[in-house]
Design a protein around this nucleic acid. Structure first.
Lengths: 250, 250
DNA sequence: CGTCCGTTTGAGGATCATCAATGTCCGTGG
DNA sequence: CCACGGACATTGATGATCCTCAAACGGACG
């Protein structure tokens, strides 16, 4: 156990819903009205997870786990931004997804991690031992159902990404990415603003484009009057419906 | 209830593991040795599902459900091949995935189906009412855990597909598709043979390529001596390591 | 056996990857 | 606090690949 991490059960044993308890974010399976993702987990469930979890503060660029290593822990993002990527044989990398608050990651495949998880910004992660998590889930079907919802939600996001990658035009891909970022991590004070915490290279690896193509695509969107770039990490949507149209159009 | 479907509980109430019970296929979460998918679900679990399931024999080209319609049923493929696709605004279609025996599909998102499911070959599907399934899962955490494994497995497959779509060369995409088909639906008698139940157009819509590109890519693979095509629905791997190499390379 | 749909082949145009060079930002150290 | 170094990001030119359009071919089903 690293010096940066501490056990949660001992830190807040009597405060369900305390700031140091993990949570999940996903869309409901039932007939929900809005497409917005909501936070799952009751205070009691969060406390139950906290009992087996340890929290860790990871600095930027720190690697949480590496692909191919034995998977003993499952993680929940408690804040900050991380990336889950895969090193391909050719040397190029593909970012499978970006991780935000309340995201679940590190699900093992045959006992090993399929991707490498690395912090982009300083981040907080909850570490859940897989074996103990499995026990907790088996004892709490409702909690397990929440996990099922979460993974199902992830599956939909992955399918959306497949549609994105099916596009062949770089501006369209970038437009979909911006809309996705706006939906996933909206800025409460400024709905038109889109935070882009990751580097252009990260975006390129996520969109399966060259960094040059991302740059030119960004220019194209600006030229069409859809967005403006305050700086490299903050975009502003000028023509919301135009951007949505380009993103939706295939 | 259509005339083609019948309730299972009454058809085989005393035979757990009878041929008319649904099953799931997925990779284990724990440290498994092989990468092969195994059948999940104990006889008792299958019987429990059978109690709420109805089975239906669907002819080829029949649509099981349409995207955007209220999702009241979850499905399990009991045999045959189906496709789950999405109609895009531009009119083009994208096949999200092909469905084989023991595959789970029709998971609702906000109470509606995200894709359209259509039979490619005559197929058998088990229909599970979502509400009743949720009840059963809540009462059987182990069964629910199997579903969690299954959805997690689907998530990995979807990520693999994202990597596939990240490639820009048609022959590479087709090679990955052939390897995938060989792993997913292997022919027991002839490991070198690859059954391709779907049309070239379906393959094109799955790979996000034009039908012409698929045709030319197939020619390219043949020209390189990697595979041969007995006919349009049966390929034979000539150079296994060469094909694997092309599929893995990127 | 005929029709229709799916598939294959060919030519031209558009878009992105690659290579190379310049410009910009950030973090480090003085 | 400022200057510097290096990584990241942009811009330009060239080549390869796929999409589109169009036509001929083949097989599947009625």
């Amino acid at each position: 156990m690293s010096r940066r991490q501490q056990h949660l059960a001992s830190s807040h044993p009597l405060f369900p819903g305390a700031p140091d308890t993990p949570s999940l974010r996903a869309a409901a399976i039932g007939p929900g009205s809005t497409g917005a993702a909501v936070r799952l987990l009751t205070p009691a469930q969060r406390r139950r997870l906290a009992e087996i979890a340890s929290v860790e503060q990871v600095p930027a660029r720190s690697i949480v786990y590496r692909q191919g290593t034995p998977a003993t822990m499952v993680f929940v993002c408690g804040g900050g931004v991380l990336k889950s990527y895969r090193q391909l044989p050719s040397g190029t990398r593909r970012i499978a997804l970006f991780l935000f608050k309340d995201d679940l990651f590190g699900l093992p495949d045959h006992g090993t991690y399929m991707n490498t998880a690395q912090a982009i910004t300083p981040a907080r992660v909850y570490r859940l031992p897989v074996d103990e998590l499995a026990d907790v889930l088996r004892r709490d079907p409702d909690l397990e159902f929440q996990f099922l919802c979460k993974v199902t939600h992830e599956l939909r996001e992955s399918q959306r990404r497949s549609i994105l990658l099916g596009r062949r035009d770089a501006p369209g891909r970038l437009a979909m990415f911006l809309v996705m970022m706006q939906r996933t991590a909206p800025l409460p004070r400024d709905p038109a603003a889109v935070a882009i915490p990751m580097s252009r290279t990260d975006v390129a690896e996520f969109l399966a484009l060259s960094p040059e193509a991302v740059s030119r695509a960004a220019n194209a969107l600006v030229r069409r009057g859809l967005v403006r770039f305050e700086n490299r990490h903050l975009a502003r949507v000028v023509d919301r419906i135009g951007l949505q149209s380009l993103a939706s159009r295939l």
